[in-house]
Structure formats: structure tokens, C-alpha cells
């Protein structure tokens, strides 16, 4: 599978996490590599607007992958990019694969939300196979997604507001938290994703 390289930050952890789960991983920004991959991972580093800009040359390939049914996993910022728009840095358009807006966490809580929080299941999903409700996963974010369609919500988390911490729609899977940083619980989810890709 291809992990999209935005050019900044730590991509080593997500690569290692997927490799431990049995995937062969290429960290790349090359459209041909993305086209040739069995799955695309949008990792979670950086700010929204620069990430959208870095995505421009490959946005079409990712959109084709979306249509063709190729599994796509978005992590943290990679989840946020899938939405219609984000209020981070004004109002910036995303890939619009999932309708909805990404907005700032309320002022009543410290931002960024940094640390381990629990997930509540909104519905069952193959990514959650073997994961217990109420498990802790690792979050680092100041913005959260508000999907227009509630049926895309897989898990919710409370932090000043109850928000969608995992969403899924057909071949799209995305987590606001970092499975690659969530110890054993996260590795189970990555393994589940790899198994979905292999199917």
C-alpha cells in the first residue's frame, strides 16, 4: 500500500505499524505509485491548508481510487482532508469525499487535545474487530469533523463536545486518532485494515 508523503513530519511510525500488520508499504508522492497500489493511506501530519496544497498533484488519483473502490485510510489530518471543508486557517476546501465541515474544538477544553481518550461505538465495523468499546486511543488535534450524514460515524469520543472519532463510507476509512500511536489497540485496527485490503 502507498502512504502519501506530504514532505514533513513522522511517516516512519505509520509505515512501521502497517508493516507489523503484514502490509508492504511504500512512502510516496508519485501518482503512478498511488495508481499501482492496493490501498492508499493519508497520514496525519501538519496543518490543513499546506496539506491540501501538497495533495493537489495527486488529488485526481485519490479521487479515482475513491470511485474505483480502492481502500483509503485517513489518519488525523488525513481524515480531515476527506471532508468538504475546514475552518482551520479561514475556510479551506478539502477533498469532499465525505460531506461535512472540520471545526475547532470548543474553548471550554485545552487545545490541542493531546493524549489518550476513549472511543464509544456508534455501530459495528470490521476495523473494530477485536477492539473493546471504551478502549483508549491516542489523539493530537485541535479540530474535529462534523459529518453531515450521521451514518458515516463509527465511533464517538467526548472532549468538550461529542465528536466523530472514526468514520467510514464504502471503501473510505478514517480515524481522528492515531492508530499507529495507540499501542496494542491501534495495531489491531491497522491489522484489520490490512485484512480488508487483502480481501
Amino acid at each position: 500500500m502507498a502512504v502519501v508523503n506530504y514532505g514533513v513530519g513522522n511517516l516512519r511510525s505509520i509505515r512501521k505499524g502497517l508493516e507489523k500488520s503484514g502490509a508492504t508499504v511504500q512512502v510516496t508522492h508519485n501518482p503512478a505509485d498511488l495508481r499501482g497500489s492496493d490501498a492508499i493511506v493519508l497520514p496525519g501530519v501538519g496543518a490543513f491548508a499546506p496539506a491540501v496544497k501538497n495533495m493537489e498533484p495527486i488529488a485526481d488519483v485519490v479521487a479515482q481510487a475513491m470511485k474505483s473502490g480502492k481502500p483509503i485510510l485517513g489518519v488525523c489530518l488525513g481524515l480531515q482532508l476527506l471532508f468538504t471543508k475546514s475552518s482551520e486557517g479561514g475556510s479551506v476546501k478539502g477533498l469532499d469525499f465525505i460531506s461535512g465541515e472540520v471545526v475547532k474544538l470548543p474553548d471550554s477544553v485545552k487545545t490541542p487535545q493531546m493524549g489518550w481518550n476513549t472511543i464509544n461505538f456508534a455501530r459495528s465495523h470490521p476495523l473494530l474487530d477485536g477492539v473493546k468499546e471504551g478502549s483508549y486511543v491516542y489523539f493530537v488535534h485541535s479540530y474535529y469533523p462534523q459529518p453531515a450524514d450521521p451514518t458515516v460515524v463509527v465511533t464517538t469520543t467526548d472532549y468538550g463536545v461529542k465528536f466523530a472519532s472514526m468514520v467510514a463510507k464504502k471503501n473510505l476509512f478514517a480515524t481522528q486518532f492515531h492508530p499507529e500511536k495507540s499501542s496494542k489497540t491501534g495495531l489491531i485496527m491497522l491489522k484489520n485494515f490490512v485484512n480488508i485490503v487483502k480481501r
Binding site: V8, G9, N10, V45, G46, A47, P112, M114, H141, S142
Partner: peptide, 8 residues
Amino acid sequence: ASIFGSQC
């Protein structure tokens, strides 16, 4: 912070 994000 502007290159890598505040989170790191």
C-alpha cells in the same frame, strides 16, 4: 509550528 504543526 507552521511547517510541522503545533502538535509536534
